[in-house]
């Protein structure tokens, strides 16, 4: 599967299916700090992402607010 990490605009290619929770652990992303998006839907931690999926992991944390 191809993972697009935003806002870094970096792609990661992984093989095999896994849960969203495992995917986030592998990417070092803390729960609740990113949305996991497939097409136009949000995925829960328990859902399975497949080998041929294209997934966006979009960070939700922003900083610098004065």
């Amino acid at each position: 599967m191809r993972i697009l990490l935003r806002p870094q605009c970096r792609t990661v290619d992984l093989t095999g299916r896994r849960t969203v929770a495992r995917l986030l652990r592998e990417l070092g992303v803390l729960p609740g700090t990113a949305m996991v998006i497939r097409k136009d839907t949000l995925l829960l931690d328990s859902e399975i992402v497949e080998e041929d999926d294209e997934i966006e992991v979009r960070a939700v944390i922003s900083g610098g607010a004065a």
Binding site: G32, M35, L42
Partner: peptide
């Protein structure tokens, strides 16, 4: 939380700036 506001924006189809300052 930021997860809640980001989820709302995404599900409402709001095109927001994802890049960080």
């Amino acid at each position: 939380s930021e997860y809640e506001t980001a989820s709302y924006a995404f599900l409402r189809g709001i095109d927001y700036v994802v890049d960080e300052c």
